[in-house]
Amino acid sequence: MNFAIRYLTEYRYESPVTDNLNALRVKPATMATQSVEDFVVRVDPEARLNRHLDYFGTQVIEFGISRPHDHLSIDVRARVQTSTPAEPLDTDWEAIEDRAYDAAAGEFVLPVGPEPDHLILDELVGDTRGESPLATLRRMVEVIPDRFEYRAGVTYVGSTVGDLLAAGAGVCQDFAHLALLLLRRHGIGARYVSGYLWAPSTDDEASAEVETHAWIEALLPNGSGGLTWIAADPTNRTLGGESHVKIGHGRQYADVPPIKGVYRGAAGSSLSASVRMTRSDVTPISSP
C-alpha cells in the first residue's frame, strides 16, 4: 500500500515559554516490507533540527527553541510504501529453548523493571500458551482483547500493566505492554512497536483520521534456522500487515515515544494532535 501521512501536533501555552527542547521519533522505518519515499518535518517557531539514530535504531529528531514563544507546532509529512510480510512458519517450542536464541533475543526476553504481583498474570500466561511460539502469538492477540476492554481515558501515557489489570480496560499502549510481559514469560523475545495504523472506518475510504498506534513484534524461528521478528497487534486481533507503518521499537513505550519534550516556564498548555493517512495508490471512489 502507498500512504501519505500527515502528523500534526500543536501546543499552545498560556504565557510565553522558553528553552523548549523536544525529541521526535516519528519517521517511518526503512525495512524489507516498508520504504520511505519522502519525509519532511516542519517546526514553528522555526528551529534547527538535529538527527541521530538511537540505541534501538530509531531516527530521533531533536530541536530546541530558546526564545520566548506561546505556541509550538510540529508538522510531519511522510510518503510510505508497505508490503505484506511473508506468512510466518510454525516451529515447535524447542526451537527457542537454547542459548543462541537467548543471545539473539537479548534484552527483549528479559523483564523490564518490577512486574505487578498479580495471580491474574499467571492465569493469562496459561491462557495464552499454545502448541508452538507462533500459536502462542496468535492466541495472545485474541485473549487480550477478549479479557480487556479497549477504552480511552482510563489509563494515561505513564500507566503500567498493573494499572491495566486494575482497570480492566486500556488502550493499544497498555495492550502492547501486557502482551510483551506475557510473551517474555513464555520465553519469547518481544518488543514494543510505535507507528501509524491505516484504519479507515469504512473499506472504501481513501483517507482517514487516525492516531499513532502501538503493537508488538515477537522473535520467532523462521524454519530455515534463522529468526524473524513477527509483528502482532493485540488491539486489533491480528498479526502485522501492510496497514501497519512502523516507526521504531524498544523494550517499552518509554524507549520510542513519538514526542518527548521539556520547556522552561510554569505556563499550562493545551495540546491538539492529529494523524491523517491518505491512500495514494487508489483513486477515491466518486460519490454517486
Binding site: 543471545a103 534484552e107 528479559l110 524507549d255
Partner: peptide, 13 residues
C-alpha cells in the same frame, strides 16, 4: 550480552 543489558547502569543513551 544479556548480563550487560540487564545491568541497571547500562546506559542506552
Amino acid at each position: 550480552w544479556q548480563l550487560v543489558v540487564s545491568r541497571p547502569a547500562f546506559a542506552r543513551a
